[in-house]
Design a protein around this nucleic acid. Structure first.
Lengths: 175, 175
DNA sequence: CCAAGTTGGTTCAATGACCGAACCGAGGCT
DNA sequence: AGCCTCGGTTCGGTCATTGAACCAACTTGG
């Protein structure tokens, strides 16, 4: 977007935030990172994003300290992208956005989000109604619902059909 | 963006939401609507957005039922754009985004948001810590802080320097 | 009445972002 | 050697955004 041009004059933390995460695809990359997607190729097939755009987004997100590029094997050298604390702090935003989309657009609940400790569905603000506390992101369990396509083409979507916690890396079956 | 092309396949309420409000400028238009901006020209000068883009955004937001175009005088015919319930439901998202921007990017608190009934600053989820309840959007009072430019060029920014409630229309002084 | 101003747009050419496909290089496997 | 995977880069074509100019309806000032 090269947002800075106009957004910078906005004297507003919302505008500043949008400069960083407001570009096309960016929030979907971050959503996938919460779902445990970590590798270039997995983002690629799961999002259907152009390669050049993905490379650019990963680079700016890394530069902004939202993702961290981390070497996870030496030979061949391979890196993964994981959310930093700053990235994890975006969870309430994503949660609110998803809630709005579900209630005002799709109308269907495709996945359930639960407090892993007690199995209770999260409330409107991401809290656990049973425990009365805000649930830390790693304690949120994602349970895919029946509304999802059960035979998706790409292996990442297939791996995400299993319940798992947020941030926990997806295990993509090699074909 | 003409997002639908790829986003539609995403089986995700976040993706659906981004199709509707993910385009450049859209969320800033909505933010301004919360601040009480209602008229084409006021959006224009406050955001510094190209006219054609503003017209396009207002049209899609109206078509999506997020804004409502409402005739407020007959002669000359003049319309204003006001948030619908669906639009007002975006407040938690905007709040979360603004909080993230303030804590992780700008670091400065430019405006205070308070529960108008008791004057208490809102908590992290937009609740009133004193009353222990979620504050309805029209009961949120915006108090501009000293970090803001006190002599902004455009009349809308100047009008917004006075404390007021969300959704309450701005009163722009004619020059 | 006429001229100028206000409001809310539309149109247009130029620029920039995004797209999909092709290519590339490092390293491993057989 | 030859082929595969992973993580990119490069490239031409297309689509969105930009800023400036133009336009139409109506009002106000003289």
């Amino acid at each position: 977007m090269a947002l800075g041009k106009d957004y910078a004059t906005q004297e507003c933390s919302i505008a500043s935030a949008l400069e960083v995460i407001g570009e096309r695809w960016t929030l979907l990359v971050i959503r996938d990172a919460f779902y445990g997607v970590r590798r270039y190729n997995d983002f690629l097939v799961h999002l259907g994003i152009p390669r050049a755009v993905l490379a650019a987004r990963l680079q700016t997100l890394t530069a902004q300290g939202i993702l961290e590029k981390r070497r996870y094997q030496e030979s061949p050298p391979r890196d993964e992208y994981v959310l930093t604390d700053r990235g994890i702090a975006l969870w309430p935003t994503l949660w609110a956005l998803g809630l709005w989309g579900r209630e005002h657009l799709t109308g269907v609940r495709l996945r359930a989000f639960r407090h892993a400790d007690c199995g209770t569905d999260l409330g409107r603000y991401g809290e656990c109604p049973a425990c009365g506390t805000v649930v830390p992101v790693p304690d949120v369990e994602v349970v895919p619902g029946p509304g999802l396509n059960q035979e998706p083409a790409d292996p990442v979507s297939r791996a995400l059909l299993r319940p798992k916690r947020l941030l926990q890396p997806v295990e993509v079956d090699p074909v």
